[in-house]
Structure formats: structure tokens, C-alpha cells
């Protein structure tokens, strides 16, 4: 098998492996979703069940929920790599470390997006805001990918430290805020009755895409220094 053929086989194997584990345990998406709903209920309590207030800040609430639920999904995903250390068996396989990074980013993104697929209708129901607009969904998807890319990089380091998972939110939330702020700004612009002209939101799209590309590049180039000793 040639090198690029092997790359695709390996990438598919890595993603398929995470999907199989999820099929058997049904934990990542389940835990994220449960947490997300608990968070939404808690926010309502903080906003004193004021539907008007919820409506005002719905976009921000959605992002905060995704961020916090996302750290749980990352934790779950890395827990399965560390129990019995199958990661060592992967490291001695003839595989580029960047493939491992890509595989993790793809599978955790899929889980997070699956969680969002259920979370977004909930938000539409409680806030009556047009989260269903394709541009909004695109922004959320792009934002999620950037967030997960940073998350995979940071979690891979955090689980090798004394502080373990506790370090993940501390490192990941600040690091991912630039993309989330840009994406949230973009989403907020779409929450009005009329769609804004694309020229008005192109800047936020550009920032989100720039962050995604930069973070993916950083991960691809540095991941072997993260997992190899």
C-alpha cells in the first residue's frame, strides 16, 4: 500500500474506532447532551426564567453550553485512549502523528456536532431565534471544528500532566475564545428578523476560518512532540 493510501486507511480506522467505541458505550454524546440540557436549565434559573432575557442572550448561551459540554466529550474520548494505554500500540505503528491528530479532531467534532444537532432545536424552542439559518449552522460547525482542534491539542498534553483533566478547561477555554467570540459575534448578527448582507458578516467568517486553519496547522505540525517522548 502506498503512503497516501495508508494515510487514508489509517485515518478511517482511527475515526471508525472512536465511532465503534461510542456505539458500544453510548457515552460521549449522551454525557455531553445531558450536561448541555442541565446547563440550559441552570441558565434559565440564573436569568430568573425570564424568556425575554433568554432570547436576548440565546446565541451566547448556546456557545457557552457547547464549550462546557465539549470539554466533557474530550475527556471521554481521551479516557478510552489511556485505559490500558492503547495509545502506545498506536505510537509504535507506522503512522504519522498528524494522522492521529486529524483522526481525533474528526471524531470528537462528529460527537460534538451530533450533540449540537439536538441542542440547537432546543434553543430554537426556548428562544424563538432563527438558529436554523444555514449561515448560522455553518458558523457553528466551523467554530466547533476550531474549538475541537484546540481541544485535542490541549487535552493530549493535559492528560500527560499531574493535573490531568482538570487542566483542560483552564487551558482550552482561553485558547478557544478567539474563535468562539468571532463565531458568536457572527451568530448574533443573524439573530435579527432580516438576514444581514454578507459583507457585514464576512469579517467574522474570515476570523473563524483563519483560526480553524491556524489551529489545525499548529496541531498537525506539533502533535508528534505532544505524543512522543
Amino acid at each position: 500500500m502506498n503512503r497516501s493510501g495508508l494515510f487514508w486507511t489509517q485515518l478511517r480506522a482511527l475515526v471508525w474506532k472512536d465511532l465503534q467505541i461510542e456505539r458500544h458505550t453510548k457515552q460521549s454524546i449522551g454525557i455531553m447532551l445531558m450536561f448541555a440540557i442541565v446547563a440550559v436549565v441552570t441558565f434559565n434559573f440564573a436569568l430568573e426564567n425570564n424568556l425575554g432575557a433568554v432570547r436576548e442572550v440565546a446565541g451566547g448561551l448556546l456557545w457557552v453550553t457547547i464549550l462546557l459540554a465539549g470539554t466533557l466529550g474530550l475527556n471521554r474520548s481521551f479516557a478510552s485512549e489511556l485505559e490500558n494505554r492503547p495509545i502506545d500500540a498506536m505510537l509504535i505503528a507506522p503512522m504519522d502523528r498528524s494522522t492521529m491528530f486529524m483522526g481525533k479532531v474528526i471524531s470528537v467534532s462528529l460527537f460534538t456536532l451530533a450533540m449540537e444537532l439536538i441542542l440547537i432545536p432546543v434553543f430554537i424552542a426556548i428562544s424563538n431565534k432563527p438558529f436554523y439559518r444555514p449561515e448560522v449552522l455553518l458558523l457553528i460547525t466551523l467554530g466547533t471544528i476550531g474549538y475541537v482542534a484546540a481541544g485535542v491539542l490541549v487535552s493530549s498534553m493535559a492528560v500527560q500532566t499531574r493535573a490531568n483533566y482538570v487542566l483542560v478547561p483552564v487551558l482550552l477555554l482561553p485558547l478557544s475564545l478567539p474563535v468562539v467570540l468571532a463565531a458568536a459575534t457572527g451568530v448574533a448578527q443573524y439573530m435579527g428578523l432580516n438576514k444581514p448582507p454578507f459583507a457585514d458578516v464576512s469579517a467574522t467568517f474570515a476570523l473563524v476560518i483563519a483560526y480553524d486553519l491556524l489551529m489545525l496547522a499548529a496541531g498537525l505540525f506539533t502533535y508528534n512532540y505532544v505524543v512522543e517522548e
Binding site: L153, V154, M157, P178, A218
Partner: peptide, 19 residues
Amino acid sequence: FAAVYVIAAFITVIMTYVS
């Protein structure tokens, strides 16, 4: 790890000065 983190962290500097 510090070296890897500093590379990822610089993305926030770029974002700050571009935003």
C-alpha cells in the same frame, strides 16, 4: 509542552491584532 503551547497560543495574539 511549553513550546507546543506557545505556538498554539500565538494564534490568539494574531487574532487580537487582526480582530
